[in-house]
Write a protein that binds this DNA or RNA. Structure first.
Ligand SMILES: Nc1ncnc2c1ncn2[C@H]1C[C@H](O)[C@@H](COP(=O)(O)OP(=O)(O)OP(=O)(O)O)O1
Ligand SMILES: [Mg+2]
Ligand SMILES: [Mn+2]
Ligand SMILES: [Mn+2]
Length: 798
DNA sequence: AACTGTGGCAGCCTAC
DNA sequence: GTAGGCTGCCACAGTT
């Protein structure tokens, strides 16, 4: 039955909370909640949430007087709505502060600037907390949680609902509609130019099975394609839009093309166009009422195991690849489009691209959802936010729950060097039956065990009336009571990670579900460790170098103690890094673990048992085979993204041969054959690509770096060519010239008459990679390279 | 003047 | 967040 407008009848709105933005009603900002319901999307407004920040009185000033003063202070036209004295806690002590309520979030910057400049104000706090996130934190409203809202029709905004009560279920399954799209652009040059190069294909794929491939007619512009894509998005009305590298390519390109045609890409749920803004080096894209995720951004942050993060490789990692796309190079899109025979192929591939982007998002969504809920960020922000800022939001929310006032962000301590973990010298060679023991969640556990937290830190010379923990070497002290600000959060994260590990153990290895959980578990591990790193980070709100320094000092102390205990119990300690010890298998191992766990406040666990373990002799470099038959490699070239695939494949085989047969001679023979194959030109180009990240503008390098010079050369060769800073540069080495950097070529700029330098790949890639492992067995690099060694030359001549 | 060997260092990436 | 390995460039020294 239809309700009377403005009546008191309540409505129930249910769905997944997608995002919160705000609308301005009579000069006031009202948070607007977007719910993805079973059928429709709902919005509801919050009429009673006000933007605010804090002003802390200077030593000489009293809070109530300051409140009065601020109340009468204006910044230009802008006056505070209200100033009230509140009691908050800081460093475990009570503090009176002035809570400054603004009429509108837009007034906050001017007010805080004005207030900060006043002598009576020591600092302003939490003035950088965005209004909508502030709302979510203060009301404990979690994005991407199933949400039920009791609402009444609004008197002030016709047709809108006003929230009376919000209820959420964090566990309940959510069902979001996803829609991925991917653009192919006609590019006569390698880097397309949005002012002239049209979009030729837009592929679309939804999680309901919907697919569509839009193409540009040969005789017409891409105007209609752009319109059709926008219309499709509007009509399919997805909750979440998905791209792969859409932040920096598809979205800006689409908007630029629309602008060329004087049209708008109206894809927002309110009919608005996407908002694209520069966020550091990246662009950030917001679409009103929808989530927007970029598979590339998520992969960058959450899939560190994928070294070169192309769409295909990330998709493959997540088990959602759609067949082989070799030969379809985005650099040659124009050529392929113009070739009638290949166009069909292109369309099929384009559809696969959208499907893969979709698959990536589907697999990573549960993790994103957890992160968003924990940090009070919507999907768009939460899927892009770095670990440090995640930690910051975590802490801000905890601060609110505990009535803690966040520290002044501007008063940070700068950067200070401090000592980290210890690494033992490994004995080169093969070892049998080795147990790899490792403390679980070492730094976070140390922090929990010793109540390490910026607020429990007792500076030198300060007396405390309670027990304190004192860190070895650095002598930093921490109150034993009450619980510090970090403790509960860290314990929760440690426990949640434990739950994930248990959940994983129940799933059979190899399944995608388990792999996804492993990704999530690793992400939580890194987030947990980020709380330690956060304290030493100069950009942190709760920066505390003594906390970070004390944590690593305890870490060194405990690992040293574990090593000593192992020695005492007659175990052979082979190696250790930060929180691990590798010991020879022994009856006493179990007793050793028990003794360590009895004595120390953190837990030592068996990470792996190796029947065979090989050390090159360098720290952080080894390969082992576990009793389960898995090969574990650390540090060696096979783990790195900046060595060519061929060299890594050779090294992997050398490692496998060594670990399974302990037969270095066979491994050597294999390596020599691999060198010969390279000399004979039997290795495909793609296996010889070397990838390195471009970390700055090529012009800015102080020495000539191969990957930077390759980009530089491409720029000179082709007007408008750009390789974004932060992108991985794939290059090969050709054989004419002197310095390697002069011989590096981007694959798309390899001239017809240029030959790869087999000697470079032999001497600088394959042989070093193989030799890293084989040198221990006395193999000589020249020998591996198939060249007479210096020794044999001398023999021959002498 | 051109070449070779070496050590310092920038750059990159990985293990914790 | 710190520790660490390794490559390639480059300056510089010591040849040839
Ligand atoms: N990404 C990181 N950022 C900051 N500190 C880190 C990071 N990775 C490792 N560390 C530090 C903190 C860790 O507690 C310590 C030991 O690393 P590691 O054993 O790999 O993880 P962990 O002990 O935290 O978890 P696990 O239970 O898996 O062993 O090294
Ligand atoms: Mg460890
Ligand atoms: Mn594509
Ligand atoms: Mn550990």
């Amino acid at each position: 039955m239809p309700e009377q407008a403005g009546s008191e009848a309540t409505h129930t709105i249910e769905g997944t909370l997608l995002t919160v933005d705000y609308v301005t009603v009579n000069g006031r900002a009202w948070p607007r909640l977007w719910l993805a319901g079973e059928q429709d999307t709902h919005t509801a407004l919050v009429s009673d949430f006000e933007p605010y920040f804090y002003a802390v009185p200077a030593e000489s000033a009293e809070a109530d007087k300051l409140a009065h003063t601020l109340q009468r202070t204006t910044a230009g036209e802008i006056a505070p709505e209200r100033c009230e004295v509140v009691t908050r806690s800081e460093d475990l002590a009570e503090l009176e502060a002035v809570r400054v309520v603004a009429h509108h979030p837009g007034n906050v910057p001017a007010l805080r600037r004005k207030f900060r400049s006043m002598d009576a104000v020591a600092s302003t706090r939490e003035d950088d907390v965005l209004f909508v996130n502030r709302f979510m934190v203060d009301r404990d409203v979690r994005p991407l949680a199933w949400t039920r809202i009791e609402a009444t029709e609004s008197d002030e905004v016709p047709g809108a609902m006003e929230v009376d009560a919000i209820e959420q279920d964090l566990e309940a399954a959510v069902d979001l509609d996803l829609l991925a799209f991917d653009l192919e652009v006609y590019n006569p040059h390698v880097t397309p130019d949005a002012s002239s190069d049209p979009i030729v294909v837009a592929s679309i794929a939804g999680d309901d099975g919907y697919t569509e491939v839009l193409t540009k007619p040969d005789e017409a512009s891409d105007r209609e394609l752009v319109q059709d894509l926008a219309r499709t998005i509007r009509e399919r009305d997805p909750d979440v839009l998905v791209t792969y590298n859409g932040d920096n390519f598809d979205w800006p390109y689409l908007v630029d093309r629309a602008e060329e045609h004087g049209i708008e890409v109206q894809v927002g749920r309110d009919g608005s166009t996407p908002e694209i803004r520069q966020a550091g080096r990246d662009k950030a894209v917001t679409v009103t009422g929808r989530g927007n995720v970029d598979g590339y951004q998520m992969a960058q942050r959450d899939l560190p195991d994928v070294k070169v993060q192309t769409l295909e490789r990330v998709a493959e990692h997540l088990g959602v690849d759609e067949g082989d796309h070799d030969g379809l190079d985005s650099a040659n899109m124009a050529e392929i489009w113009d070739d009638a025979d290949r166009r069909e192929e292109l369309l099929a591939y384009a559809e696969d691209d959208a499907l893969m982007a979709l698959g990536i998002a589907e697999n990573l969504l549960p993790l994103q959802r957890g992160l968003c809920q924990r940090t009070y960020q919507d999907l768009s922000d939460g899927s892009r936010m770095g670990r440090g800022r995640q930690a910051d939001w975590y802490l801000l929310a905890e601060a609110h729950r505990r009535n803690v006032l966040a520290p002044d962000k501007r008063a940070h301590q700068g950067s200070a060097d401090y000592e980290g973990g210890v690494v033992l010298e490994p004995p080169a060679g093969i070892h049998e039956d080795v147990v790899y023991l490792d403390f679980s969640s070492m730094y976070p556990s140390i922090m929990v065990a010793h109540n390490v937290s910026p607020d429990t830190y007792v500076p030198p010379g300060v007396d405390v009336d309670v027990d304190a923990y004192e860190a070895p070497e650095v002598d930093h002290r921490f109150r034993a009571e009450p619980d510090g600000f970090f403790k509960r959060l860290l314990q929760q994260l440690i426990d949640q990670r434990g739950d994930l590990k248990e959940e994983m153990a129940d799933l059979s290895p190899g399944t995608q579900q388990r792999k996804n959980l492993a990704v999530e578990e690793q992400a939580i591990k890194v987030l947990t460790n980020a709380f330690y790193g956060y304290m030493g980070w100069s950009g942190a709100r709760w920066q505390s170098v003594p906390c970070a320094e004390a944590t690593t000092a305890w870490g060194r102390h405990f690992i040293q103690r574990a090593v000593d205990m192992a020695d005492e119990m007659g175990l052979e300690v082979l190696y250790g890094d930060t929180d691990s010890v590798m010991v020879g298998e022994d009856e006493a191992v179990e007793a050793f673990i028990d003794a360590v766990n009895e004595e120390l406040p953190i837990e030592l666990e068996v990470e792996a048992r190796f029947d065979t373990l090989f050390f090159t002799g360098a720290k952080k470099r080894y390969a082992g085979r576990t009793l389960e038959g898995d090969t574990v490699v650390r540090g060696l070239e096979v783990r790195r993204g900046d060595w060519c695939e061929y060299a890594k494949d050779v090294q992997q085989t050398v490692i496998d041969t060594l670990l399974s047969d302990q037969n270095p001679d066979e491994a050597t023979r294999f390596a020599k054959d691999a060198v010969q194959a390279l000399r004979d030109g039997e290795v495909p180009l793609e296996d010889l690509l070397i990838h390195k990240t471009l970390t700055m503008d090529p012009e800015d390098y102080s020495s000539k770096q191969p990957h930077a010079m390759a980009v530089q050369r491409a720029r000179e060769q082709e007007e408008g060519f750009e390789a974004p800073i932060g992108s991985k540069i794939g290059y090969v080495i050709v054989d004419d010239g002197d310095l390697v950097s002069e011989r590096a070529r981007l694959i798309d700029f390899l001239a017809e008459d240029e030959e790869l330098d087999a000697d470079y790949y032999i001497d600088k890639q394959v042989v070093p990679a193989a030799h890293r492992v084989l040198s221990y067995f006395g193999e000589d690099e020249d020998e591996l390279a198939g060249r007479p060694s210096q020794a044999s030359l001398r023999e021959w001549s002498g």
